[in-house]
Design a protein around this nucleic acid. Structure first.
Lengths: 208, 208
DNA sequence: TACTAATCACCCTTATGGGGTGATTTTTTT
DNA sequence: AAAAAAATCACCCCATAAGGGTGATTAGTA
């Protein structure tokens, strides 16, 4: 059987930190190699700890968790980062994932699930709590009752991709003027008068 | 206590379909109200079944599962759709989620987890198997070793949003010429010479 | 039948996008 | 402290793309 999973914890709340450290340290197959109260604290020493997984809090004094992610990834490229936070802010979640977090759990997650998630993340899974998964799924979903027709949606997506009118015309095998016509209708429907505004409005309403 | 969760199954494999029907029907709190072998089969009658959750297979003769999602959503707007498939194709998953699927499980998911997921989805959760979650998370992650500088990445994101040079300049409080300069460097680094190509290349390499 | 979607046409003007070249200042890394 | 990288600004050029206005045809659908 393989060696223990080395876990490091970065969490500013003393009580919570000690709690996690105890909890995870007790579990079979896990070793808490270090715990820090802030990222700035951890920065200097954590490379020496060689953790496999870092439990990271978002709300912290100094460098916050989100900013800390890419820095930690740079210090420990092989290390997985599991976010543990109280908030379920959509923007924060996506930011964390974009920055390189491998999983995202809320603090109300039962201890057993947290332990399990550490193993999941180590083995290449991507653990998240139900509510987070829900947000993520929602972020994928397009608005079902779009005011835009199929063709218009298609053209707006090409505009979003930075394509210009003639590129779009070529790609869809239609005339340049037809593209213009569609774009005008898109602008009318979305009540905008520029590509940027159309993209912005469309994204806000999940039309694309 | 509340009434049973009404489940409908659309799956072309007779054995699997019967298996699921039995499995879920046996479970406490669940009722299988109908099962169909294809979407085209289901289309005419499923509205009458009033399911809360539809278990949907992707690989099917006739209208495939992905195409079926928006149609089902139109027939039963309040109904949740849970995808059950053998493949874990990234594109397929995102397509399904974009089209309105509420969850995504692979067929090797243990029956108990499937039953649990049906309840999760009914209660507004977004169940997915570990591997799917991993793919989804990966899709969010940016390439850590981007050739682009922070500023360049930032500007390329604004370009992706359809902003033009002066809009970008205004937004970042820098000169128009500075924006041009950055854009030129972006083009150099990505070896492209148009906005569209830059966006395309950047997305392919998860730079934005 | 009337409405929407999708297609194409021609008028107009401005500003944008992209190429070339070079320099200065600030920040970061060594 | 020195070197490298990032960020800033400047001025040359020109083709064309973008957006506004107005209108028409065809096909499909409610």
């Amino acid at each position: 059987m393989s060696r223990d999973i080395r876990v490091s914890i970065i969490e500013d709340d003393e009580t919570i930190r000690q709690g996690y450290a105890f909890l995870i340290g007790e579990a079979d197959g896990y070793e808490v190699v270090s715990h820090y109260s802030t990222y700035d604290d951890a920065a200097r020493k954590i490379t020496g700890d060689k953790p496999d997984v870092i439990l990271l809090d978002i709300e912290m004094p100094g460098t916050n968790g989100i900013e800390a992610i890419p820095k930690l990834k740079k210090l420990l490229p092989q290390c997985f980062i599991l976010i543990l936070t109280v908030y379920e802010s959509e923007k924060q979640i996506f930011n964390a994932l974009e920055n390189g977090a491998s999983g995202y759990l809320t603090k109300n997650t039962p201890p057993s699930r947290i332990i399990e998630s550490i193993k999941e993340v180590k083995e290449g899974g991507g653990p998240m709590s139900i509510n987070i998964a829900k947000l993520v799924i929602k972020s994928f979903q397009k608005n079902q009752e779009s005011p835009l027709s199929k063709r218009e949606t298609q053209i707006l997506e090409l505009i979003r991709d930075g394509k210009n009118r003639s590129q779009i015309a070529r790609e869809l095998f239609i005339d340049l003027e037809t593209v213009r016509s569609h774009v005008k209708n898109i602008y009318l429907k979305l009540d905008v008068n520029s590509r940027a505004d159309a993209i912005k409005t469309a994204k806000e309403n999940k039309l694309i």
